[in-house]
Simulated scan of single mutants.
Amino acid sequence: MPTALHTLPAQNAKNSYFNVIIETPKGSRNKFAYDPETELFQLKGVLPEGSSFPYDFGFVPSTQGDDGDPLDVLVLMDAPAFTGCLLEVRLIGAIEAEQTENDGRVEKNDRLLAVSAVSREHQHLQDIKDLSPQLLHEIEHFFHSYNEAKGGEFKPTRRSGAKQAARLVAHGQKLAAA
């Protein structure tokens, strides 16, 4: 049965911000994931020495991706949050991708990109085109390396702007409600 974290609304009714639950904070080598059965955050893996999450990583509640999990989000903000933190964010885009698991299964597994609603450092970012090509390459490289270390593959298929990211969330809400 879904828990409160998974049933929070994807978007705040009072404003245009989306809700995100942080699973893994920026700078962490530990990969945490919310487990709806236990209603706890569980350690799912450890990145190799020298690797860490470049930004806070979490999910949009009340959504579901093609992989069956809530939609993934990488959140740019000034300082790391903490596991379980609820953030209001502005979507700025998405890295649409195919992910091959170590068992050979290929699934669409996009990564939404967002900015914390209260960020000072990133407040000017409104769309993926506002990010430097180098930063986008580094983010994609992180996900490629992360999946490779687990025996899988991450293959970006398209970079999309804020409007497409919002459409991906709307689609994810429909999948979760079905």
Rank of each mutant, 00 (worst) to 15 (best):
L74P: 01
A10S: 15
K163E: 15
A114P: 03
K129M: 08
G45L: 06
R105P: 02
R120E: 15
F53K: 00
P36G: 06
P133F: 07
K108S: 12
M1A: 14
V118C: 05
G50Q: 11
E49V: 14
L112Y: 08
G172T: 10
L112I: 08
H137P: 01
R29S: 09
S16W: 08
S52E: 11
A79N: 11
D69Q: 14
P2K: 08
A94T: 08
I128P: 03
R29F: 00
P70H: 03
Y34K: 00
A178C: 05
A97Y: 01
I128S: 12
H144R: 14
H122P: 01
L168V: 08
Q64E: 15
S16V: 10
F82Y: 15
L168M: 09
A149G: 06
L43Q: 05
D66F: 09
F18H: 14
P25D: 08
G104F: 09
K14D: 15
V115S: 05
D72C: 04
L112A: 07
L125M: 13
D130W: 07
I128K: 00
A13K: 13
N102V: 06
P54Y: 07
Q134R: 14
H6Y: 09
A79K: 13
L135W: 09
R111Y: 02
E88F: 10
E88G: 12
V20L: 05
P133Q: 09
A178K: 13
T63N: 04
K26F: 04
E37G: 09
H122G: 00
D127R: 02
P2Y: 11
Q126L: 11
G93K: 01
K163H: 11
F143K: 01
A4P: 00
D69V: 06
G152V: 03
R90D: 06
Y17W: 12
D35K: 00
N12F: 08
R158L: 08
A117S: 15
R105S: 14
T100M: 13
L8G: 04
R120H: 15
K129H: 10
G50E: 10
F57N: 01
E153S: 13
L168Q: 00
V60M: 00
L135R: 13
R120A: 10
L86P: 05
L112G: 03
Q11A: 11
Q126E: 12
P36H: 12
T3F: 00
K26L: 07
F53E: 00
D110I: 01
R29E: 02
A162V: 04
D67W: 02
E148I: 04
S51M: 15
F32Q: 03
E98Y: 10
R105D: 11
N109T: 09
N30S: 10
L87A: 07
F41H: 02
S28Q: 05
P25Y: 08
L5Y: 12
L131S: 05
C85F: 12
F57Y: 14
R159T: 12
A117Q: 06
T63S: 11
P80I: 03
P133K: 07
T100P: 04
F18N: 04
L76S: 03
V106E: 10
E23W: 00
K14R: 12
A149N: 11
Q99A: 11
I95S: 02
F32H: 03
K150D: 14
R111N: 09
K108R: 14
K129N: 07
K129Q: 10
S145H: 06
S119W: 05
R167K: 11
V169E: 08
A166Q: 15
K14W: 11
G27Q: 07
D56E: 05
L47V: 04
